[in-house]
Amino acid sequence: MELVEAIILSVLAASTPLLIAATGELVTERAGVLNLGVEGMMIVGAACGFGGAWLSGSTIIGALCGIIAGMLLSLVFAMMTLGLAVNQVASGLALTILGIGLSGLIGAGFVGERITPAPHLHIPGLTDIPLIGRILFGEDPFIYLSLALVVAVWGFLYRTRPGLVLRACGDNHVSAHALGYPVLRIRTLAVMFGGACAGLAGAYLPLAYTPFFIPGMTAGRGWIALALVVFASWLPGRLVIGAYLFGAVTILQLHAQGAGVGIPSQFMSALPYLATVIVLVLISRARTGGSTAPAALGTVFVPDR
Protein backbone atom coordinates (compact mmCIF):
# COMPACT_ATOMS: atom_id res chain seq x y z
CA MET A 1 0.00 0.00 0.00
CA GLU A 2 2.84 2.35 0.71
CA LEU A 3 3.99 1.72 -2.84
CA VAL A 4 0.60 2.88 -4.11
CA GLU A 5 0.88 6.03 -2.05
CA ALA A 6 4.37 6.65 -3.38
CA ILE A 7 3.28 6.10 -6.97
CA ILE A 8 0.37 8.51 -6.57
CA LEU A 9 2.70 11.14 -5.12
CA SER A 10 5.05 10.77 -8.09
CA VAL A 11 2.21 10.86 -10.58
CA LEU A 12 0.79 14.06 -9.09
CA ALA A 13 4.17 15.78 -9.28
CA ALA A 14 4.90 14.55 -12.81
CA SER A 15 1.48 15.63 -14.06
CA THR A 16 1.42 19.10 -12.54
CA PRO A 17 3.56 20.99 -15.09
CA LEU A 18 1.54 19.34 -17.86
CA LEU A 19 -1.72 20.32 -16.20
CA ILE A 20 -0.73 23.95 -15.62
CA ALA A 21 0.56 24.49 -19.15
CA ALA A 22 -2.40 22.68 -20.68
CA THR A 23 -4.91 24.72 -18.67
CA GLY A 24 -3.41 27.91 -20.07
CA GLU A 25 -3.38 26.56 -23.59
CA LEU A 26 -6.98 25.44 -23.20
CA VAL A 27 -8.08 28.99 -22.49
CA THR A 28 -6.03 30.26 -25.43
CA GLU A 29 -7.56 27.71 -27.76
CA ARG A 30 -11.05 28.27 -26.42
CA ALA A 31 -10.65 31.87 -27.56
CA GLY A 32 -9.79 30.53 -31.01
CA VAL A 33 -6.01 30.85 -31.00
CA LEU A 34 -3.65 27.90 -31.48
CA ASN A 35 -0.29 28.66 -29.88
CA LEU A 36 2.16 25.85 -30.65
CA GLY A 37 4.93 27.69 -28.80
CA VAL A 38 4.15 26.22 -25.36
CA GLU A 39 7.51 24.45 -25.19
CA GLY A 40 9.34 27.72 -25.92
CA MET A 41 7.38 29.67 -23.30
CA MET A 42 7.89 26.88 -20.76
CA ILE A 43 11.65 26.75 -21.14
CA VAL A 44 11.95 30.53 -20.83
CA GLY A 45 9.68 30.32 -17.78
CA ALA A 46 12.03 27.69 -16.35
CA ALA A 47 15.12 29.85 -16.93
CA CYS A 48 13.57 33.06 -15.56
CA GLY A 49 11.82 31.24 -12.72
CA PHE A 50 15.06 29.69 -11.58
CA GLY A 51 16.94 32.94 -12.01
CA GLY A 52 14.39 34.85 -9.96
CA ALA A 53 14.36 32.30 -7.18
CA TRP A 54 18.14 32.03 -7.13
CA LEU A 55 18.71 35.78 -6.95
CA SER A 56 15.95 36.47 -4.44
CA GLY A 57 15.96 33.22 -2.49
CA SER A 58 12.19 33.08 -2.76
CA THR A 59 10.12 30.47 -4.58
CA ILE A 60 7.25 32.93 -4.95
CA ILE A 61 9.38 35.54 -6.67
CA GLY A 62 10.76 32.79 -8.89
CA ALA A 63 7.26 31.69 -9.84
CA LEU A 64 6.32 35.29 -10.59
CA CYS A 65 9.39 35.72 -12.80
CA GLY A 66 8.40 32.58 -14.69
CA ILE A 67 4.84 33.83 -15.14
CA ILE A 68 5.97 37.25 -16.37
CA ALA A 69 8.51 35.75 -18.76
CA GLY A 70 5.93 33.41 -20.26
CA MET A 71 3.48 36.26 -20.57
CA LEU A 72 5.96 38.54 -22.32
CA LEU A 73 6.84 35.86 -24.81
CA SER A 74 3.17 35.13 -25.48
CA LEU A 75 2.69 38.84 -26.08
CA VAL A 76 5.15 38.60 -28.97
CA PHE A 77 3.03 35.78 -30.33
CA ALA A 78 -0.16 37.81 -29.85
CA MET A 79 1.35 40.77 -31.68
CA MET A 80 2.24 38.51 -34.58
CA THR A 81 -0.91 36.46 -34.92
CA LEU A 82 -3.54 38.91 -33.68
CA GLY A 83 -1.93 42.23 -34.46
CA LEU A 84 -0.46 41.25 -37.80
CA ALA A 85 -2.68 38.30 -38.74
CA VAL A 86 0.26 35.96 -39.29
CA ASN A 87 -0.33 32.22 -39.49
CA GLN A 88 -0.54 30.76 -35.99
CA VAL A 89 1.15 27.43 -36.65
CA ALA A 90 4.24 29.04 -38.15
CA SER A 91 4.41 31.71 -35.44
CA GLY A 92 4.08 29.13 -32.68
CA LEU A 93 6.96 27.09 -34.07
CA ALA A 94 9.08 30.21 -34.47
CA LEU A 95 8.26 31.10 -30.87
CA THR A 96 9.61 27.74 -29.75
CA ILE A 97 12.92 28.31 -31.55
CA LEU A 98 13.20 31.79 -30.09
CA GLY A 99 12.31 30.55 -26.61
CA ILE A 100 14.93 27.80 -26.63
CA GLY A 101 17.59 30.30 -27.69
CA LEU A 102 16.54 32.91 -25.14
CA SER A 103 16.43 30.41 -22.29
CA GLY A 104 19.98 29.37 -23.07
CA LEU A 105 21.17 32.98 -23.01
CA ILE A 106 19.26 33.81 -19.83
CA GLY A 107 20.17 30.59 -18.07
CA ALA A 108 23.88 30.67 -18.91
CA GLY A 109 24.50 32.76 -15.81
CA PHE A 110 23.23 30.24 -13.29
CA VAL A 111 23.85 26.82 -14.72
CA GLY A 112 25.24 24.64 -11.93
CA GLU A 113 23.63 26.59 -9.13
CA ARG A 114 21.05 25.04 -6.87
CA ILE A 115 18.17 26.37 -4.80
CA THR A 116 15.99 25.06 -1.99
CA PRO A 117 12.96 23.41 -3.55
CA ALA A 118 9.48 24.70 -2.79
CA PRO A 119 8.35 23.49 0.66
CA HIS A 120 5.65 20.88 0.99
CA LEU A 121 2.50 21.53 2.95
CA HIS A 122 2.54 20.10 6.43
CA ILE A 123 -0.48 20.18 8.71
CA PRO A 124 0.28 18.29 11.90
CA GLY A 125 -2.23 15.51 12.30
CA LEU A 126 -3.71 15.63 8.83
CA THR A 127 -0.49 15.15 6.87
CA ASP A 128 0.41 12.23 9.11
CA ILE A 129 -2.71 10.21 8.33
CA PRO A 130 -1.44 6.96 6.81
CA LEU A 131 -1.75 6.47 3.05
CA ILE A 132 -3.85 9.51 2.17
CA GLY A 133 -2.33 12.12 4.48
CA ARG A 134 0.60 13.05 2.29
CA ILE A 135 -1.41 12.81 -0.90
CA LEU A 136 -4.09 15.21 0.32
CA PHE A 137 -2.22 17.42 2.77
CA GLY A 138 1.48 17.08 2.01
CA GLU A 139 2.00 18.31 -1.54
CA ASP A 140 3.97 21.28 -2.80
CA PRO A 141 1.97 24.49 -3.31
CA PHE A 142 2.03 24.23 -7.12
CA ILE A 143 -0.04 21.06 -7.05
CA TYR A 144 -2.84 22.72 -5.11
CA LEU A 145 -2.48 25.79 -7.29
CA SER A 146 -2.83 23.74 -10.48
CA LEU A 147 -6.10 22.21 -9.30
CA ALA A 148 -7.41 25.57 -8.13
CA LEU A 149 -6.48 26.92 -11.54
CA VAL A 150 -8.53 24.26 -13.32
CA VAL A 151 -11.54 24.93 -11.11
CA ALA A 152 -11.20 28.67 -11.65
CA VAL A 153 -10.93 28.24 -15.41
CA TRP A 154 -13.94 25.94 -15.44
CA GLY A 155 -15.95 28.41 -13.38
CA PHE A 156 -14.84 31.27 -15.58
CA LEU A 157 -15.63 29.56 -18.87
CA TYR A 158 -18.99 28.13 -17.90
CA ARG A 159 -20.34 30.26 -15.09
CA THR A 160 -19.41 33.82 -16.04
CA ARG A 161 -20.40 36.13 -18.81
CA PRO A 162 -16.83 37.00 -19.87
CA GLY A 163 -16.20 33.27 -20.11
CA LEU A 164 -19.14 32.91 -22.43
CA VAL A 165 -17.88 35.78 -24.55
CA LEU A 166 -14.43 34.20 -24.71
CA ARG A 167 -15.91 30.94 -25.93
CA ALA A 168 -18.01 32.84 -28.44
CA CYS A 169 -14.85 34.40 -29.86
CA GLY A 170 -13.42 30.92 -30.31
CA ASP A 171 -16.50 29.49 -31.93
CA ASN A 172 -17.44 32.28 -34.27
CA HIS A 173 -15.36 35.43 -34.26
CA VAL A 174 -17.45 37.10 -36.93
CA SER A 175 -20.63 36.87 -34.85
CA ALA A 176 -18.81 37.85 -31.67
CA HIS A 177 -17.47 40.89 -33.45
CA ALA A 178 -20.86 41.73 -34.88
CA LEU A 179 -22.26 41.64 -31.35
CA GLY A 180 -19.75 44.33 -30.46
CA TYR A 181 -17.21 42.27 -28.52
CA PRO A 182 -13.57 43.27 -28.93
CA VAL A 183 -12.46 39.91 -30.35
CA LEU A 184 -8.78 40.77 -30.71
CA ARG A 185 -8.49 42.21 -27.21
CA ILE A 186 -10.15 39.16 -25.69
CA ARG A 187 -7.92 36.85 -27.67
CA THR A 188 -4.82 38.79 -26.65
CA LEU A 189 -5.76 38.36 -23.00
CA ALA A 190 -6.41 34.66 -23.55
CA VAL A 191 -3.01 34.24 -25.23
CA MET A 192 -1.34 36.07 -22.34
CA PHE A 193 -3.09 33.84 -19.83
CA GLY A 194 -1.79 30.86 -21.76
CA GLY A 195 1.70 32.34 -21.71
CA ALA A 196 1.51 32.99 -17.98
CA CYS A 197 0.47 29.39 -17.32
CA ALA A 198 3.21 28.02 -19.62
CA GLY A 199 5.75 30.18 -17.82
CA LEU A 200 4.53 28.96 -14.44
CA ALA A 201 4.56 25.35 -15.63
CA GLY A 202 8.12 25.80 -16.83
CA ALA A 203 9.12 27.44 -13.55
CA TYR A 204 7.65 24.48 -11.65
CA LEU A 205 10.42 22.25 -13.00
CA PRO A 206 13.41 24.08 -11.45
CA LEU A 207 11.47 25.42 -8.47
CA ALA A 208 9.94 22.20 -7.21
CA TYR A 209 10.63 19.19 -9.40
CA THR A 210 14.38 19.15 -10.03
CA PRO A 211 15.76 22.26 -8.26
CA PHE A 212 18.43 23.36 -10.74
CA PHE A 213 18.44 24.82 -14.24
CA ILE A 214 19.86 23.10 -17.29
CA PRO A 215 19.22 24.14 -20.91
CA GLY A 216 16.55 21.99 -22.48
CA MET A 217 15.19 20.72 -19.17
CA THR A 218 11.56 20.88 -20.28
CA ALA A 219 12.39 17.97 -22.62
CA GLY A 220 9.23 18.16 -24.75
CA ARG A 221 6.65 18.65 -21.99
CA GLY A 222 5.19 21.65 -23.82
CA TRP A 223 4.26 19.43 -26.74
CA ILE A 224 2.57 16.97 -24.44
CA ALA A 225 0.56 19.82 -22.89
CA LEU A 226 -0.66 20.71 -26.39
CA ALA A 227 -1.69 17.12 -26.95
CA LEU A 228 -3.53 17.05 -23.63
CA VAL A 229 -5.76 19.95 -24.59
CA VAL A 230 -7.02 18.08 -27.61
CA PHE A 231 -7.13 14.81 -25.66
CA ALA A 232 -9.42 16.56 -23.18
CA SER A 233 -11.56 17.81 -26.06
CA TRP A 234 -11.18 21.33 -24.66
CA LEU A 235 -12.93 20.52 -21.38
CA PRO A 236 -11.14 21.57 -18.16
CA GLY A 237 -12.45 18.60 -16.16
CA ARG A 238 -11.14 16.11 -18.67
CA LEU A 239 -7.83 17.92 -18.69
CA VAL A 240 -7.26 16.83 -15.10
CA ILE A 241 -8.03 13.22 -16.00
CA GLY A 242 -5.84 13.42 -19.09
CA ALA A 243 -2.89 14.98 -17.31
CA TYR A 244 -2.98 12.46 -14.47
CA LEU A 245 -3.46 9.59 -16.91
CA PHE A 246 -0.45 10.69 -18.90
CA GLY A 247 1.59 11.13 -15.74
CA ALA A 248 0.43 7.73 -14.52
CA VAL A 249 1.44 5.92 -17.71
CA THR A 250 4.87 7.59 -17.59
CA ILE A 251 5.46 6.68 -13.95
CA LEU A 252 3.95 3.21 -14.14
CA GLN A 253 6.11 2.21 -17.08
CA LEU A 254 9.16 3.13 -14.98
CA HIS A 255 7.80 1.04 -12.13
CA ALA A 256 7.07 -1.89 -14.44
CA GLN A 257 10.70 -1.81 -15.56
CA GLY A 258 11.94 -1.66 -12.00
CA ALA A 259 9.79 -4.70 -11.23
CA GLY A 260 11.47 -6.51 -14.13
CA VAL A 261 8.58 -6.68 -16.59
CA GLY A 262 10.40 -7.53 -19.82
CA ILE A 263 8.82 -5.34 -22.48
CA PRO A 264 11.21 -3.28 -24.63
CA SER A 265 11.43 0.11 -22.99
CA GLN A 266 10.85 1.87 -26.33
CA PHE A 267 7.42 0.26 -26.59
CA MET A 268 6.55 1.36 -23.09
CA SER A 269 7.76 4.88 -23.82
CA ALA A 270 5.60 4.93 -26.94
CA LEU A 271 2.52 3.86 -24.99
CA PRO A 272 1.30 7.28 -23.82
CA TYR A 273 1.43 8.62 -27.36
CA LEU A 274 -0.38 5.65 -28.88
CA ALA A 275 -2.92 5.83 -26.07
CA THR A 276 -3.56 9.49 -26.85
CA VAL A 277 -4.19 8.73 -30.52
CA ILE A 278 -6.51 5.84 -29.73
CA VAL A 279 -8.45 7.69 -27.04
CA LEU A 280 -8.79 10.68 -29.33
CA VAL A 281 -10.21 8.51 -32.09
CA LEU A 282 -12.63 6.87 -29.66
CA ILE A 283 -13.77 10.21 -28.24
CA SER A 284 -14.21 11.73 -31.69
CA ARG A 285 -16.04 8.65 -32.90
CA ALA A 286 -18.43 8.53 -29.98
CA ARG A 287 -19.42 12.10 -30.57
CA THR A 288 -21.71 12.48 -33.53
CA GLY A 289 -21.11 15.56 -35.56
CA GLY A 290 -17.35 15.67 -35.41
CA SER A 291 -14.96 17.03 -32.83
CA THR A 292 -15.65 19.64 -30.22
CA ALA A 293 -12.81 21.88 -31.25
CA PRO A 294 -13.53 25.61 -31.05
CA ALA A 295 -14.78 26.22 -34.56
CA ALA A 296 -12.57 29.22 -35.25
CA LEU A 297 -9.42 27.59 -33.81
CA GLY A 298 -6.29 28.64 -35.63
CA THR A 299 -8.02 30.92 -38.10
CA VAL A 300 -6.99 34.49 -38.68
CA PHE A 301 -9.41 37.23 -37.78
CA VAL A 302 -9.13 40.79 -39.00
CA PRO A 303 -12.04 42.93 -37.85
CA ASP A 304 -13.95 44.49 -40.66
CA ARG A 305 -14.58 48.00 -39.50
Binding site: A14, F212, Q257, G258, Q266
Partner: peptide
Protein backbone atom coordinates in the same frame (compact mmCIF):
# COMPACT_ATOMS: atom_id res chain seq x y z
CA UNK B 1 19.55 -4.71 -8.61
CA UNK B 2 16.52 -3.03 -10.16
CA UNK B 3 17.13 -1.39 -13.52
CA UNK B 4 15.11 1.35 -15.22
CA UNK B 5 15.94 2.56 -18.73
CA UNK B 6 14.85 6.14 -19.40
CA UNK B 7 15.82 6.08 -23.10
CA UNK B 8 17.60 9.37 -22.87
CA UNK B 9 21.01 10.59 -21.77
CA UNK B 10 19.50 13.70 -20.44
CA UNK B 11 15.96 14.34 -19.19
CA UNK B 12 16.15 15.62 -15.61
CA UNK B 13 12.43 15.16 -14.95
CA UNK B 14 12.35 11.58 -16.16
CA UNK B 15 15.59 10.71 -14.38
CA UNK B 16 14.06 12.07 -11.16
CA UNK B 17 10.91 10.00 -11.74
CA UNK B 18 13.01 6.89 -12.30
CA UNK B 19 14.95 7.52 -9.10
CA UNK B 20 11.71 7.92 -7.15
CA UNK B 21 10.28 4.74 -8.65
CA UNK B 22 13.40 2.79 -7.70
CA UNK B 23 13.37 4.10 -4.14
CA UNK B 24 9.64 3.42 -3.84
CA UNK B 25 10.23 -0.16 -4.92
CA UNK B 26 12.64 -0.73 -2.10
CA UNK B 27 16.04 0.16 -3.50
Amino acid sequence: VKIIWVNSWFDPGKEADAAKALLDQGA
